[in-house]
Amino acid sequence: MGIIEAILLTVITAATPLVIAAAGELVTERSGVLNLGVEGMMIIGAVCAFAATQATGSPYIGILAGILSGTLFSLLFGFLTLTLVANQVATGLALTILGLGLSGQIGEPYAGQSGIKLPQIVFPVLSDIPVIGRLLFQQDLIFYLSIALIAGIHWFLFRSRAGLKLRSVGDSHTSAHALGINVIRTRYLAVMFGGACAGLAGAQLSLVYTPQWVENMSAGRGWIALALVVFASWRPWRIVAGGYLFGAVSISQLYAQGNGFNVPSQLLSALPYLATIVVLVLISQNRRMTMINTPASLGKPFVPDR
């Protein structure tokens, strides 16, 4: 295995949870809801996936548990912000605090256990293609899901009727309501989808990335996912680009260090964050693009008139 191929493989593993969580949040935000609780849903997904895998011995049941727990947890956010119109920023932060505490509590008996790694699914023939074969066709289920998710979301948002409705809810909930679209229900579904994705991303952490449970193991990745959504200016495929770019920056600094590259390691560690800021600035320069894609009623509460 060549060094480039090896680096890319590491990047893919590091980027996959970011891509999945960001994809879910993208759909949530497209419906006009800003859920800052991604970190909390992710860590809940991670601990539930790990616990279910240890209990049943099947990482696939673990994946389901991760998705389900993330969805349930997001419902808490949905109930507060959609039904009770609580402030979305505060509720999202509260969700993260609760998620970190709750996951620590659930995970206490599992600390220090060695988990079961999600097996690879190898596509015959395709996996023999040089470089690409190893990178794209010898991966685990969650990686394939991440790509399918992005393609599916792209199709859903821009090719399907339901996606059109969802976008119209995000752009102007009052007009969407006037057109007879059930704004609250649409948003509930979008929030739940976001939760499911964050839970899946969490499952990737505790089943693929590092098959174990460690408190706070999401280590800020939920926040990076949030940044990715804006980075991608709410376009699904750009999430993949952004996620892999971010992964590449944070991984390559480790490789650079191994080569005796002399820069303060703190600066290298800060690079991904600085890069994100720079890209955010560059993207927001293109006013037309951001205006078209930004959900206009993002973060604004909706209460139907009766």
Partner: peptide, 25 residues
């Protein structure tokens, strides 16, 4: 010996990445 500074005591993801980087080299 090759040294990688992970700048953390405790981040399984980052530690795993550092391990991969070292092994790949």
């Amino acid at each position: 010996i090759k040294v990688v500074w992970a700048n953390t005591w405790f981040d399984p993801g980052k530690e795993a990445d550092a391990a991969k980087a070292l092994i790949d080299q």
